[in-house]
Amino acid sequence: MARQKKRADGRYCKNVTIGRNEDGSYKRKMVYADTQKELELKVAELKLNVENGTLVDDENMTVEIWANKWLETYKNNIATNSIKNYKTTIKNHIAPEIGHIKLKDLREKHVQQLVNKKSESGLTRGTDYIVMTMKQMLKKAVKNGYIAKNVAEDIEKPKYDKQTKKPLTEHEIDIIKKTAQTHRGGPFILTLLYTGMRRGEIVPLTWNDIDFRNRVIKVNKAVEFVHGRPNIKSTKTYTSVRNIPMLDIVYDTLKEIKKSTNSLYVFTSTFNEIHTQNSLKNLFNGFKNECTKIAGYEFEFTLHQLRHTCATMLYNAGVGAKDTQDWMGHSTIAITMDIYTHLDKQNKVAALDKMNKHVNTMQKEAL
């Protein structure tokens, strides 16, 4: 009977006989575990599967087969959008490139070559998902004893130059406010701009979440769109659950809406129901079209840009980073500080430009 051994990496292993090959020789499988107790349990489970005829043929298991099995086993209870991202990553990127390779034959170079190829093609966020997916699925493959090592463990995410998020200018905000006076999407847009809420947080907002007495909006749920239909769920992170103070413009806007609605939801479609993905798209595009008419040029902005503009206004108003984190619902203070640091740099550049102009003007006058 094979004895268990302790490997150089600290893990325990044991070679277990699971049957015979076609030539009559013994067919064996190496089992790995972090502790002796875990090893004993895995060996017992393996022997039980052999006896019951339910042993998975991991000798011929490919990367694609395991990726789909991993997805089905370990990702069946996550958010719809998240599982969609995993499925897309496996179907469009992992399976076509390395899906045919047997799991036991997969090497670090295969994963790195995949990551390099996708990165060089201009895929940024998608490449991040490839690295994240490979690391997670191979970690579980090691836990299940299909492979001895996670060959994606040391693969690094490519570093990209972050695209600068631009807040709206004062002129652009003025155009939005003018449009909001007459367009039905005005209250929705203004509330986003002056609260910094995410799209998924404002859509399921109910009147029970509006505390006029204490002038706060209670953010306690979110929505994701599944096949275009709204699905209400918990917020993005625990820090997303928060009370946002109502500025006067938001307070007055919501008070006005309340006078003429009997809906449960604060912002509704033309059918007086919670927004679908399509009704929200139509509302936003219609609002931008009106902005274009007022501006006299193609007026473009995103809903997330409204959120970034709110964070910028908090910075310009002198609100501290910790208070801004609480207001915006950032998961970490690092996210807030990243915005504040970037704005600090912008202000220093602007101050330098002003100083240069002032000095140059003085020199010209002296001549």
Rank of each mutant, 00 (worst) to 15 (best):
G186N: 01
G186S: 08
P187I: 09
F188H: 03
I189V: 08
L190Y: 03
L190S: 02
L190A: 01
T191P: 04
T191V: 05
L193R: 09
L193W: 03
Y194W: 13
M197F: 03
M197W: 05
M197S: 12
R198I: 05
R198E: 01
R199L: 12
R199I: 15
G200N: 13
G200M: 12
V203G: 15
P204V: 05
P204C: 06
L205E: 07
L205G: 04
W207G: 11
W207Q: 12
N208P: 15
D209V: 06
D209C: 12
D209N: 10
I210T: 04
F212E: 07
F212P: 10
F212Q: 07
R213F: 15
R213M: 11
N214A: 11
R215G: 14
R215C: 08
I217D: 00
K218C: 09
K218T: 13
V219A: 02
V219N: 04
N220D: 14
K221Q: 00
K221R: 11
K221M: 05
A222R: 01
A222E: 02
E224F: 00
G228L: 04
R229A: 08
N231E: 12
I232M: 01
K233R: 14
K233T: 07
T235F: 00
T235G: 07
T235Y: 04
T235W: 02
K236E: 04
K236L: 00
T237D: 08
Y238L: 15
S240H: 01
S240G: 03
V241Y: 08
V241M: 14
V241Q: 12
V241H: 07
R242D: 04
N243T: 05
N243G: 10
N243C: 06
N243V: 02
N243L: 12
N243I: 08
I244N: 00
I244F: 07
I244A: 02
I244R: 04
L247S: 09
D248K: 11
I249F: 03
I249Y: 08
I249M: 11
V250D: 01
D252F: 05
L254I: 06
L254Y: 04
L254V: 05
K255V: 01
E256T: 14
I257P: 03
I257R: 05
I257G: 06
K258E: 01
K258G: 08
K259E: 11
K259P: 00
S263K: 08
S263W: 02
L264E: 10
L264G: 09
Y265Q: 01
V266W: 02
F267E: 00
F267I: 02
T268K: 06
T268E: 09
T268V: 10
S269K: 01
T270L: 10
T270A: 12
F271S: 14
F271T: 14
N272E: 11
N272A: 08
N272S: 10
I274K: 13
H275S: 03
H275N: 03
T276N: 05
Q277K: 09
Q277E: 11
Q277A: 14
Q277L: 14
N278M: 14
N278A: 15
S279C: 06
K281T: 12
K281S: 14
K281D: 13
N282V: 15
N282D: 15
N282R: 14
L283K: 07
L283N: 02
N285Y: 09
G286H: 05
G286Q: 05
G286W: 08
G286R: 08
G286E: 05
F287Q: 04
F287G: 03
K288L: 11
